[in-house]
C-alpha cells in the first residue's frame, strides 16, 4: 500500500511519528546540554500534537486532556526545570564527547529495525489506523535507553530517562487511545516527582563527588576491593 492511498489523517500521523523518532536521533547526536534539553522539549510538543490529532480523529475527548497534560509537563515544565538546573549548576555551556558517535547512530538505526521486528505480531492485530506507530514508540523507548548508555553526564541520562517515558506515553496513545485517566494522572505525578528528585540528586552529586559525571560513581563493587580499602569508610 503506497503512502498516497492512506487518508490524510494517517499520513499526518505517520509524519508526526517520524518527527518524534527524528527528535530521538537528534538527542542521540546532540552533545551540548541546552540544545539537548530543547530537543527533548520538541519531542514533548510533537507528542502532544500527535495525541491531539488522535483525539480529534478518534473522537476520544479525554485524549485532549492527555495532550494538554503532556504538553504542559513534557514540553514546558520539565524542560524548564532542567534548563534552570543546568544554569544553576553552571553546566549549560558544557558539552561532552561521545566515544563513537557514528556507531551510536548506526546502533540507533538498528534498534528501529529491531522494534519493527518485535512489534510485528502486535501491529498485525491492531485495528487502529495508527498501528505503524507502535513500532515507532517502541523504538523511542529503546533509543532513550541507548542515549542513557552512551552518555556519562547525569543530565543527559535524565533526558534519556524522560525520553523513555515519552515513548511509553506515545505507545499508550497509539496502541489503545491512551490509558484510563486515573492511571495517566498517576504516571504524570510520578514523572514530575522523579524530575524534582533528579534535581535534588544533581546537587547531592555535585556536593559529594564534585562532578556530574556518572563515571565517577564507581566506588561500590564486589571485586577490586583494594580501591575502597585504601580509603577506609567512616
Amino acid at each position: 500500500m503506497g503512502l498516497a492511498q492512506l487518508d490524510l489523517f494517517d499520513q499526518a500521523m505517520l509524519l508526526f511519528a517520524a518527527l518524534v523518532l527524528f527528535t530521538s536521533f537528534v538527542m542521540l547526536a546532540q552533545v551540548r546540554i541546552v540544545p539537548l534539553i530543547h530537543a527533548f522539549a520538541w519531542q514533548g510538543a510533537l507528542l502532544a500534537v500527535a495525541t491531539a490529532l488522535v483525539a480529534f480523529v478518534s473522537k476520544h475527548p479525554h485524549l485532549y486532556l492527555s495532550a494538554g497534560l503532556g504538553f504542559g509537563l513534557k514540553a514546558l515544565l520539565i524542560p524548564w526545570i532542567l534548563h534552570r538546573l543546568a544554569v544553576r549548576l553552571r553546566i549549560h555551556h558544557e558539552s561532552e564527547s561521545i566515544k563513537h558517535p557514528v556507531l551510536v547512530l548506526l546502533g540507533g538505526a538498528g534498534l528501529v529495525v529491531f522494534s519493527y521486528y518485535v512489534t510485528l505480531p502486535i501491529v498485525q492485530l491492531s485495528e487502529l489506523t495508527t498501528r505503524n506507530t507502535i513500532a515507532v514508540s517502541q523504538a523511542v523507548v529503546l533509543l532513550g535507553m541507548l542515549l542513557m548508555i552512551s552518555r556519562n553526564k547525569a543530565v543527559a541520562q535524565v533526558i534519556g530517562f524522560m525520553s523513555i517515558e515519552n515513548g511509553l506515553f506515545f505507545a499508550a496513545v497509539v496502541a489503545t487511545y491512551g490509558m484510563p485517566m486515573v492511571v495517566e494522572l498517576g504516571i504524570a505525578f510520578d514523572v514530575l516527582v522523579a524530575v524534582v528528585l533528579f534535581g535534588v540528586f544533581f546537587f547531592q552529586m555535585r556536593e559529594s563527588i564534585d562532578s556530574l559525571d556518572v563515571n565517577r560513581l564507581n566506588r561500590l563493587r564486589e571485586v577490586d576491593e583494594a580501591l575502597s580499602e585504601a580509603e577506609p569508610r567512616q
Binding site: 523507548v141 530517562f161 540528586f201 560513581l217 566506588r219
Partner: peptide, 28 residues
C-alpha cells in the same frame, strides 16, 4: 550523603526507573 550513598541512590534510581518503565510498556 556520603559519595557511596549518593552513588547507590543514583544507581537505584536509574536502574529501577528504567527497569520499571519496561513494566509500564508491558502493562500498556
Amino acid at each position: 550523603r556520603t559519595p557511596e550513598a549518593v552513588e547507590a541512590a543514583w544507581k537505584y534510581f536509574i536502574l529501577c526507573g528504567v527497569g520499571i518503565a519496561q513494566a509500564l510498556f508491558g502493562t500498556i
